[in-house]
């Protein structure tokens, strides 16, 4: 319980804040507020629809389908599964998405009685992951097989963590490596080492500059927003599925704005773009 409280405070304390000597305005970011309220309204509309049983269609994500297959293969070979939640702390939304996916992976691994190894770069991520895995074992009806030693802290330093993880891959030869979350310069070092050890590799990140490396060296890759959609896809929960639909609707609206803007800019009518520049410039 305390661990959860700690984690939640840390996540929330990372939110941007208004600070300063200047007297702040009554309403600081009006356009952002309107947009946010609109998004929440759309979200709740689709949540209600989904709750009534009208589940939206979500296209198959091969990377997520492959997770079960990868754990199955590890079980057959009697080797562990390696799971990394990225190099972000819990203030990073990608890490939270990775922990959501971990919940599913850990449950499957517990059902198959396959060890799940998770070195962690941050201590808060470590304790959160321990909770997630413990709960997953409970849900799988195998609380006795939960081993907290398999989820451990390594180092806050990027390449010290990478050196350790590569060592784990070389020594323990996991049959499946799952990389979810935020990755930076180390993505190819991890993925190529994993490839050389012959593991099935599944990656997912929203760091666009690292996607090419994962695509080249991994068997499956969740690209950008697919990482965020994963928890909805895996859970098949009505509310979560509804949120994906809402997200698509918002995307279509924004796409409409972009299209109109492109046309108006092309015919040299800059007022529309100027308006957005003004609005967004003021936050």
């Amino acid at each position: 319980m305390i661990k959860r409280g700690v984690f939640l405070f840390l996540f929330l304390s990372a939110s941007p804040v208004f600070a300063g000597d200047e007297k702040p305005p009554m309403l600081a970011h009006p356009y952002v507020l309107v947009t946010m309220l609109l998004m929440i309204a759309i979200l709740y509309t689709y949540l209600l629809t989904a709750k009534k049983g009208k589940l939206p269609f979500i296209r198959t994500l091969p990377g997520l389908k492959a997770i079960d297959e990868a754990i199955g293969r590890a079980t057959e070979l009697g080797k562990p599964v390696l799971y990394l939640s990225g190099l972000g702390d819990v203030d990073n939304i990608q890490t939270l998405a990775a922990l959501s996916i971990l919940s599913h992976v850990a449950k499957k691994a517990a059902e198959y009685d396959t060890p799940l190894i998770m070195p962690s770069m941050y201590s808060v991520t470590m304790v959160t992951a321990q909770e997630v895995i413990k709960e997953a074992h409970l849900r799988a009806g195998r609380p006795d097989t939960y081993n907290p030693d398999n989820v451990y802290y390594v180092s806050d330093e990027q390449f010290a963590f990478v050196a350790h993880t590569n060592g784990v891959m070389e020594r323990m030869r996991p049959a499946a490596n799952i990389y979810m979350g935020a990755y930076f310069g180390e993505s190819l070092i991890l993925a190529e080492t994993g490839h050389a050890t012959g593991a099935i590799q599944i990656a997912g990140t929203a760091e666009t500059s690292q996607l090419p490396f994962f695509v080249v060296a991994c068997d499956y890759c969740l690209i950008g927003e697919e990482l965020y959609a994963a928890s909805a896809y895996l859970s098949q929960d009505a509310k979560q599925m509804g949120s994906i639909k809402a997200q698509d609707v918002v995307r279509l609206i924004v796409l409409g704005f972009i299209l109109v803007g492109s046309i108006l800019e092309t015919v040299n009518l800059p007022h529309y773009a100027d308006f957005f520049q003004k609005v967004l410039g003021g936050g």
């Binding site: 840390l10 304390s13 990372a14 939110s15 941007p16 804040v17 208004f18 600070a19 300063g20 000597d21 200047e22 702390d89 203030d91």
Partner: peptide, 17 residues
């Protein structure tokens, strides 16, 4: 680290803080 964004935003109006 954890509050990088709040530090960066805070520097905008109150570097001294």
């Amino acid at each position: 680290g954890l509050q990088g964004s709040s530090v960066i935003e805070g520097m905008g109006s109150n570097l001294k803080a």
